[in-house]
Each structure stands twice: as structure tokens, then as C-alpha cells.
Nucleic acid binder design. Sequence first.
DNA 1: CGATACGTCAAC
DNA 2: GTTGACGTATCG
Length: 403
Amino acid sequence: MSGMTSGVCVESDLSSMLQRSSAPSHHHPNHHGYGGQSQVSGLAPMLDYTTEMDRYRSSIATFYKTNVNMNMNVTNFPQSAKLAARLAAAAPIFPPTAARLGAMATAPWGCHDNMNMNMNHPAAMFWGRPKPVATAPTHPHHHPSATPGHMTSSHAHSSSMHQSSGGPGGGGGGGGGSEGGGAEKHGHTASLPVSQGTAHHHAIPPSNGNFLSGYSGGAECGVMNKQGHAHPDMMGLSEGSNCNGGGVMSGGFLGGLGLPPGVIVMAMGSAGGGISDASSAFQMTSGQRALTDCQQHTNSSPCPSSSSPSSSGVTAGGVSLSSSSSSSSGTVAKRKRKRCGVCGPCRRLINCGVCSSCRNRKTGHQICKFRKCEELKKKPGGGGGVLERPPSVPAGEAFRWFF
DNA sequence: CGATACGTCAAC
DNA sequence: GTTGACGTATCG
């Protein structure tokens, strides 16, 4: 898995690196799978396979090293760094991964980061600050040339990656992807998974980018930045069902991460840009809070059920336990349940801004409907019972999604 | 103390 | 069953 993840992140950068390494073709079996191979065969003799692999590996190593160093710019993104550190701590299992995560944390969509080594305008990247360049007006078709940086591999690369990276194709980044100025643009859309098949170029008024479209059919996937691109990740970090196919590694990477969006939030907040973009459809009302519920209490537990130690009302799978009762005399005073933090909605960090809950925030006191924890939607005592938890998400394994 | 969000209930 | 409003717990 990690391999895949790395692939996703490293991808574009690697391509350039490898190119630099003079490798006629940087296609890595790992990366491009068969498709790549075919290309490889055409460009480089299979004999070089092992060599390529070696190069590839070393490149990766270098990449991560570099990436972490460069990206972990605590100054610019203290929060990100924090998160990164947190992640690192939370993922003792696989140190390298931690580092990787660090990088990722800094830039959820690794590719963005890779290309925006400076990350001067993280927010811009995601919210598509009125960038002069219209990102790939046309839907990114798979460039026959298979833009080096593109992952044509198994990675659910599927619709997501390329499509955007395709952006460059249209927008210009093209080629090496990370090379040259196109970088940001490229990165911008690059790794943002887009709902499958659906035309990601919605002609929606940027003014109020509310992804109304999101309410329809592919709702969950209808996340879009101001450029009208749908970014399932931003809102629809939902599990399989929602944007499944769309996400890289379908829930394994971005979708499953839950982190990326969070990072976005942070990036926006920390970077000069901040959340300034008030007009944004996606109000980051809980930029802080969002992470709060789940990741902020990093202390020891990754997040979900383990919940913060502070919140005495330890909840498992969203169901309050023990302490709650203890708090109040003998009454079974149920404590407020907390978000599980692992379900799709919970992983979503941005309020849609258009649902009734968002609109009536003042009076409704309700969390965005798209962020309403699945667990909380269920009846408190209902079936699930005590340790109920999203089937696919074993307790304390929230971060496993990274791998 | 303000913001956020859960729980509950009434209205539909 | 769904939705909206209110009370209130929780957190910074």
C-alpha cells in the first residue's frame, strides 16, 4: 500500500527526477503497471529494468528526503508541520511512512506540494484563486504521450490524477509536470481525484461555488473548487460508496486519508491566504474545529473513538461510555456522543455551506449535513451497541488509511 | 464567553 | 420519516 501512496505523491516529481536522471523513460512497473511497461518496452530495453528500479528507488529515497526537508517548512506551515509530526508519532509502525506522511501533511496532495516546493499559496492551489490560467478547459484526456508524470498505473489513478494532471496537458504544465512554472497549476488539479467519469468542469458560477450539483446524483463527489472542478476529496472524503472510484486508491489514499482535507484547511489558515476567501462556498467554519474533533487531540490517540483523553466521556464508535455515567450521580445521563471521526462525513472537513444546517448555523446549531457523523445519525442505543464502529475501520486504525 | 455541534422535540 | 429550532454540552 505504502507503495501506492508514495506513488501517488511522488509521481510527478519523480517523473522529473527520473528524467533528470537521464532515464529515457521513467516508467516504473510499480507505477505504471502494464501500461507503463508497454511504453517502457518501446523506450527502453527491458534489460534496464533493474537499473531503472534502482534508480527509481533511490529517487524515491531522495525525493522523500528532499520533500520532507523542503516541505516541512515549519515556518510557513507550522500547523502542517505539527500535524506531520503528529502523524509521524501516530504512525510508528512504518517510520518512512511517517516521514512521508509528514510530507503529505504539508501538502495533502503530495503532488501539489512536490510541485510547489515553496507552497507559497497553498490556498490558492485548492481554491483556485482566480488564477489566470484556466486549468485544462477541456477534460484531460489521457495524453497519448502519457505525460511522464502521469500515473497510468493501477493507482486508482483512474479518473483522478491524470485528469487534472491532464490539466497541464491543457493548461501547459504538461510534460514533466513538475518542471517549469506549470508546476502549481499542475499540482493544483493534479492529484485531486475527480468523480469518476463525470465531467469535472462544471460551469458553475464561481461566485458561490456551492456545489449544488453535489446534492444531486453524485452528490458526495460534487466538491468543487472555484474553478468549477469537482474535488471529491475536499468534501467527499467519503468512503467507498460516495466517491469511491474517484479517489485515488479509492479511499485508500485521499479518500481514506481524511487528512488531506484537513491539511488543506490548515494550509489555508496558516498561509498568508488564510481563509480570507470568505466568499468561498465551503466555509471553513471549523477549520480548527474540524481537526479538533478528530486529530487535534493527538496526544496519544489518533482520533476517532479513542477520543481525547480530555473528553472524559470516552466514546467508542461514537457511543459514549463509562465515565459519562460516572459524571452524573447515578442517572444514566448520556453524554453527548462524539463524532466517530472515521466515517466519510467525519473525514470531511469542510462545511458545504449550502445545506440547511450550514445556512441555519445560527439557529440550527447543527453540523453540516455532509459532515454529520454516520454514527451519530444512528440511534444512540441502536444495534451498533457499544463498540460499534465503521465495519471497515478497526479501532485506532484510522491512520492505517495512509498505507 | 463565543463557537460548534449533539440531543431532543415539534411541525410537516 | 424528514426537517428545523432550541437547549445545552463541549472546547478553546
